[in-house]
Design a protein around this nucleic acid. Sequence first.
DNA 1: CGTCAGGTTGAGGATGATCAACGAATGTGG
DNA 2: CCACATTCGTTGATCATCCTCAACCTGACG
Lengths: 242, 242
Amino acid sequence: MAPFPLVQKLSSYLALTTDEVAYLNGLHEPTRKVQRHREIIIAGRRYDCLYILCSGVVFRYKVLPDGKRQVLNLGLPGDFIGIPACLFDVAVNSVSTLTDVVLSPMSFEKLSCLFTQFPRLGAALFWCTACDAAMYGEHLVDLGRRSAYERLAHLILELLARLRAAGLADELSYTLPLTQEFVADLLGLSVPHINRMIRCLREEGLATIEDQHVVVHDLASLSALAGFEEHYLKHRLIPGLL
Amino acid sequence: MAPFPLVQKLSSYLALTTDEVAYLNGLHEPTRKVQRHREIIIAGRRYDCLYILCSGVVFRYKVLPDGKRQVLNLGLPGDFIGIPACLFDVAVNSVSTLTDVVLSPMSFEKLSCLFTQFPRLGAALFWCTACDAAMYGEHLVDLGRRSAYERLAHLILELLARLRAAGLADELSYTLPLTQEFVADLLGLSVPHINRMIRCLREEGLATIEDQHVVVHDLASLSALAGFEEHYLKHRLIPGLL
DNA sequence: CGTCAGGTTGAGGATGATCAACGAATGTGG
DNA sequence: CCACATTCGTTGATCATCCTCAACCTGACG
C-alpha cells in the first residue's frame, strides 16, 4: 500500500524513523470525506484545528466586498489545510474543495504535542511550511510582473511539477477540474482573457487545457516562455538534523 | 533596555519562560552590521544559515531575466531572514537591505537544535512562519484584484500596522526610505504610475509619502478605500501550548 | 424541454505601461 | 567654487494589455 501522503512529503526533508512513521500514520485518522465544491473553512469563523489533506485538491481564496475573488494557493495531498487561515482569532481566508477530498482533523493541541514528542517532525513541519513561501513568492511574481500569457504557462508548469512530485501526474499531463473561471481567479485575470490565452497556447502547439485534462505539448518552449525554473519546488534534506 | 525583537515577537504567541528568554537573547549574538543598499542573500548561491534581523529593514525580491523586479516582502526586526530563500539547494530569491541593519547569523544546525531543546519555541516559530503566509495572501490579493490606487493605500496601511506592532511607528506615521521605484516593484506597477497615485492620495488628503516620511491623514477613508482589515496581522496565543 | 454550468467570441473602453524629457537635490573631483 | 554625475521625483504623449459587457453556444441533467 502507498504511504500516507504526509509521510511521503516529509520523507523528502529527512529520513524518518519507524516511530515517526508510525506516529504520522496515526495522524491520518479519523478521516472525513468532503464532496467537490464544498467549503471546508469559511472566512470569519473560529477554528480550533487544522486538517491534513489525505487525498484530493483544495484551494484557499479570498473574496473581496465587491465580489472579486483571488485564489491564493492549491492544497495537495500531504498538505496542512488551515494554514494560515485558521491560525487567527477568526479565519482570514476560506478554503474549498476542487475535487472530492478526504481529510483528517488535527487539533491545535495535538499539533503542539507533536513539537514536544517528535521534535524532528516539528523541525520538518517548520521547514516545509517555510518552503511554501517560495511558492507564494513565485505566485507574486506571476501577478506582479508576468503577462497573462506567461502566467498561464507558468501555472501549467508549476502544477505539472507539483502534481508529479505527489505522484498525481504523468510525464507531461494531468487531470484536474480547472474551470476557466478558477484559472482566472488564480492568475488575477478575467475569464474572457483566460479563454483567449488558452486558445493561444493551443494554437501555438504549446499546451492544451480541455475538459479536465491539461497536456503539455512542448515543454521546452513553454518553460522558456514562462521563465519557469523549478528550484523553488525541489526539496533539500534539512541540514544538521540528527 | 528594550527586549530583543525576536523575544518581543514570540511573546505575542506564547508566555515565554525565563529559560526561553535567556536562550533567545543568546541567539542575538554575534551580530553583523550591514549598510543600506547591500545584498545579504544572493539568488543562486548556497547558504548554510539564516539570519535574525536585530534592527533595520530588509526586503526579499526576485529579478527576472528581462530585468523586471518584484519585491516579495519586507523583513522587520525579529524576522528570520533567509526564509524561504536559503532553504533550498541554492537560494531562490535575493534579500537586500532597505536601511542599515544589524543581524545575527543562525546556522541550520542551531535551528535544528532549537526544536529539540526548546520544543515550545519550535512550535512558536512554526506558528509565526505559518502566519506570514497570511501576509503573502494579502499581497496576492493586492496584485491580483486591487487597482493601483487601492494597492498603494493598502500598502501604506499594512506597513503602518506592522511597524506599529514592532514599535517603529507613531500613531499615524512612520519613517522609511521608500523610493517610488521600490514601491512600484512591491506593487507590480510602473514608476510613473506610482507617482500619479501618490499625488492622487495627497490631493485627496488621504496620505502623503514624502522624503522618507509616510503620513496617514485620513485613516478611515484610506482603510475603506483599501479594503484594509487587519485581522491577518493580529497574533493569537497558540492554543494548547502548555 | 428548460435550466444551468461552463465555454467562446466580439466590440469598446479603461487602466496602467512605455518612452522620453526635464527638474531638484546631493555628492564628487578638479 | 564650479562642472559634472547620479539619484530620485515629475510630467506628458502614446500605446498595449486586459477588462467589461453582452451575446451566444454546448452539453449535462432533472
